[in-house]
Simulated assay, not measured.
Amino acid sequence: MIRVLVDSAADFSQEEIKERGLYLVPLQVNFEEEQYLDGVNLKRDEFYQKLTSGKVFPKTSQPSPQEFLNVFEEVKKNGDELICILLSSALSGTYQSALLARNMVEYEKIYLVDSLSAVVAVQMLCDTALKRIAQGKTAEEIVEELEEVKGRTRIFAALDTLEYLAMGGRISKAAAAIGEMANIKPVITVNKEGKVDVIGKGLGINRTLGFLQKKVEEAQIDEQYPIYSLFSYGEENCGKLEQRLEKKGYQIQARRQIGPAIGTHIGPEAFGICFCEK
Rank of each mutant, 00 (worst) to 15 (best):
A254D: 14
C274A: 15
A139C: 03
I262H: 09
Y95G: 02
E269C: 11
V25N: 02
V196Q: 08
H265I: 03
Y250P: 07
L241F: 07
A129S: 07
M181I: 14
P260C: 04
V120S: 15
I227M: 13
E148M: 13
F47K: 05
T189M: 12
G136Y: 04
L42E: 12
K18I: 08
T208E: 02
G54S: 08
E141I: 02
I110L: 09
R255N: 12
E141R: 00
V190G: 12
I188W: 08
Q35N: 11
L99A: 06
K185L: 02
T52D: 13
P268G: 01
F57R: 07
L165I: 01
P226K: 09
A158G: 02
S229M: 13
K173I: 14
V120H: 00
G136N: 12
E46I: 02
Y233D: 12
L86V: 11
M104V: 11
D197V: 14
V56W: 06
G263M: 03
I188L: 05
E163C: 11
G21R: 15
I171K: 07
V187I: 12
V105D: 08
E180K: 13
Y164N: 10
G210T: 09
L42T: 11
I85N: 03
F211W: 10
G249V: 14
Q220F: 06
A174R: 15
N206L: 09
I262K: 01
I252T: 03
V75G: 04
D7P: 13
V6K: 02
L159I: 08
Y23E: 12
P26N: 10
